Amino acid sequence: MSGRRRLLASIHDVTPVHTARLDRLVPLVEEAIGPGRFALLVVPDFHKQGLLTADPGFGRRLRGWSDAGCEMFLHGFTHLDESRHDSSVARWKATRMTAGEGEFLGLSTHDAETRIAEGRDMIEQLIGRSIAGFVAPAWLYSEDSIAALAAQNIRMIEDHFRVWNPQTSAVLARGPVVTYASRSPVRIASSILWSRLATMLLARAQTVRLAVHPHDVDSPRLLAEIARALAAFARSHRPSPYRDLVPG
């Protein structure tokens, strides 16, 4: 394994709403790459079903994961897209690339800044340290939301194909993210196919990103493939934190 090759693993949609699923998903990731060697993408009020601060027990779990080494990213605020999209491109992304969850695809700069500031403060109060960065739900951003992230001094964000600094536009890593879709049998099958191809095609890539979601545990086939892919990538790449992408 090359010391320069990195595996950046992450669990999305970390919220008390998904506690039971996270109870299965976190140990699977830990078994493959070790405790504290993956990122957690936290949603402060997932689908408006309850703030993080309303569940002290879950807040303590977040602090424990953070203390163990997990990086915490703000992952939107509600994970719901309630914007009206005027452009055909934005409407296509909102309907084809996600099921109504591209929260930051249509926000104004002001609204995005408000959610970023409130969400970051909530998470940082719970974990006692700064967040590592921001990842938009469904990896979808508007130009205004990127401007808001830069204004809020967020220095690391990612989409489907890169990790970058919104303040300087400096790209920290390139390459497709390996992720999984569980909404239908067709999506499950295509996710498994992509994952198996990716472990071959990306075996020599400098940086590999693999992202999983709580609903992945609803499919035994997906869970088995995630465990296989994580183990395969962990043999060719060193499980690493996102902060290792930052020069110096």
Score class of each variant (00 low, 15 high):
2 S>Q: 15
3 G>A: 15
8 L>A: 01
10 S>P: 04
10 S>F: 05
16 P>N: 01
17 V>C: 03
17 V>K: 07
22 L>Y: 02
22 L>M: 07
23 D>N: 11
23 D>W: 02
24 R>H: 07
24 R>N: 03
28 L>F: 05
29 V>D: 09
29 V>Q: 02
32 A>F: 06
32 A>D: 01
33 I>S: 02
38 F>Y: 15
39 A>M: 01
41 L>N: 09
44 P>Q: 14
46 F>P: 08
57 G>H: 11
64 G>C: 08
71 E>P: 01
75 H>L: 12
76 G>K: 13
77 F>N: 02
79 H>Q: 05
82 E>F: 13
84 R>G: 08
86 D>V: 07
87 S>F: 11
88 S>I: 12
88 S>H: 11
89 V>L: 15
90 A>R: 05
92 W>N: 01
93 K>L: 15
93 K>T: 12
95 T>Y: 12
101 E>I: 07
101 E>M: 14
103 E>S: 13
104 F>T: 12
105 L>G: 09
107 L>R: 09
108 S>N: 08
110 H>G: 09
112 A>P: 10
114 T>C: 13
116 I>A: 06
116 I>Y: 01
118 E>D: 07
120 R>A: 04
121 D>Y: 04
122 M>V: 14
124 E>T: 02
125 Q>H: 06
126 L>M: 12
128 G>C: 03
132 A>R: 00
136 A>K: 10
136 A>F: 08
137 P>S: 14
141 Y>T: 07
141 Y>N: 07
143 E>R: 12
146 I>F: 01
146 I>R: 03
147 A>Q: 04
150 A>Q: 05
153 N>D: 06
153 N>K: 05
155 R>W: 09
157 I>S: 13
161 F>P: 00
164 W>V: 06
164 W>I: 10
166 P>W: 08
167 Q>F: 08
167 Q>H: 11
168 T>P: 04
170 A>R: 11
172 L>M: 14
174 R>W: 15
175 G>W: 03
177 V>W: 05
177 V>D: 12
179 T>H: 12
184 S>H: 08
185 P>H: 00
188 I>H: 06
188 I>W: 04
189 A>I: 09
193 L>Y: 14
194 W>M: 10
195 S>Y: 11
197 L>I: 10
203 A>W: 14
204 R>W: 14
205 A>F: 11
206 Q>C: 11
208 V>N: 08
209 R>N: 08
210 L>Q: 10
211 A>S: 14
212 V>L: 14
214 P>G: 10
220 P>C: 03
220 P>A: 06
222 L>G: 06
222 L>K: 10
225 E>T: 15
228 R>I: 05
228 R>L: 13
232 A>F: 04
233 F>K: 00
235 R>G: 03
236 S>M: 08
236 S>Q: 12
237 H>Q: 09
237 H>P: 09
241 P>K: 01
244 D>T: 13
247 P>K: 04
247 P>Q: 03
